[in-house]
Computed example of a mutant assay.
Amino acid sequence: MNILVVGSGAREHTLVWKLAQSEKADKIYAVPGNPGMAELAECIEGVSITDNAALVKLAQEKNVELAVVGPEVPLTNGAVDAFHAAGIKAFGPVQAAAEIEGSKSFSKNLMKKYNIPTAKYEVFTEAEAAKAYIRAEGAPIVIKADGLAAGKGVIVAMTLDEALGAIDEIMGDKAFGSAGSRVVVEEFMAGEEVSVLCFTDGKTILPMVPSQDHKRVFDNDQGPNTGGMGAYAPAPVGTPELLAQVQKEILEPTIKAMEAEGRLYKGCLYAGLMVTEQGPKVVEFNARFGDPETQVVLPLLESDLVEVMLA
């Protein structure tokens, strides 16, 4: 079958590399792709990954039978919905389900409603109200831009001044654009982070091996958060006992919650977790394969990725 991979990063290169190992894969196209992928996929430039009509037209021209959407922006823009409407199988959540990453307030409210363990939080659209809450709660505290900010819209403030400055930066200076018109202020969670990437058909959810990425920019976990600067897997913190607890308390309840909300979630669900003294809690959900985690997790997958995606 012909496969189209949407995206251009190292994550998409890994997806192409893994898909190419399947006997079911005849020809792989990448839009826009990158030179590193060119040995395995035909890279097509000049098509915007946020232009759903152009993506569908390309898929139809190339007789694509499976589209794999890598980045969060086309997912939250409804690319999967567009492929489905054209009768093309697509791996990834539909727009309504991708909201679990597209809006942090939606994600937090979902967890609160369905008792999925996460940090205590409040949502604000007014800077002064957010600051008053921060003064009352004290530091350390975490401030998150509500919308998509390429994994960088999170500020872990260790002091009160830093936290108040973060509100000015996100809401006043619009450091992350419109993503910061609403903020989520969360309690600081202490512990070790673990990333769990999962396959789900909307009913069943299966985790891949646990991984861990390096978020803070300087050595010894110092400095501001980045979108992740490298990763390794399997992460020892993700013990079989921990993963069993995560499956029961976080993954299965989340998939059921999304279905109950009329947002059936299919594709890859990324659960970013903090292993606290009270047990694992959700830091964030992503609606796609994590980057850089995919680069270390998929090489450890022994199954045929095309078969998994079709299922």
Score class of each variant (00 low, 15 high):
residue 85 A to G: 11
residue 88 I to P: 05
residue 89 K to M: 15
residue 89 K to D: 10
residue 89 K to V: 14
residue 90 A to C: 08
residue 91 F to T: 07
residue 91 F to D: 05
residue 92 G to W: 01
residue 92 G to Q: 08
residue 92 G to H: 03
residue 93 P to C: 04
residue 94 V to G: 15
residue 94 V to I: 15
residue 94 V to N: 15
residue 96 A to Q: 14
residue 98 A to Q: 13
residue 98 A to G: 13
residue 98 A to D: 07
residue 99 E to Q: 15
residue 100 I to N: 06
residue 100 I to E: 03
residue 101 E to M: 11
residue 103 S to T: 11
residue 104 K to N: 06
residue 104 K to E: 04
residue 107 S to K: 01
residue 107 S to W: 05
residue 107 S to D: 05
residue 107 S to G: 11
residue 108 K to M: 01
residue 109 N to P: 02
residue 109 N to T: 02
residue 110 L to G: 00
residue 112 K to I: 00
residue 112 K to H: 02
residue 113 K to C: 13
residue 114 Y to N: 08
residue 114 Y to D: 14
residue 115 N to Y: 07
residue 116 I to R: 02
residue 116 I to F: 10
residue 116 I to Q: 04
residue 117 P to T: 01
residue 117 P to Y: 01
residue 118 T to S: 09
residue 118 T to V: 04
residue 119 A to P: 09
residue 120 K to R: 12
residue 120 K to S: 11
residue 123 V to N: 09
residue 123 V to L: 10
residue 128 E to K: 09
residue 129 A to Y: 05
residue 130 A to P: 15
residue 130 A to K: 12
residue 130 A to L: 10
residue 131 K to Y: 09
residue 132 A to C: 08
residue 134 I to T: 08
residue 134 I to K: 11
residue 134 I to H: 12
residue 134 I to P: 03
residue 134 I to N: 11
residue 136 A to L: 04
residue 136 A to C: 04
residue 137 E to L: 04
residue 137 E to H: 14
residue 139 A to E: 08
residue 139 A to S: 11
residue 141 I to M: 12
residue 141 I to Q: 05
residue 142 V to G: 00
residue 142 V to Y: 03
residue 142 V to S: 01
residue 143 I to S: 00
residue 145 A to E: 03
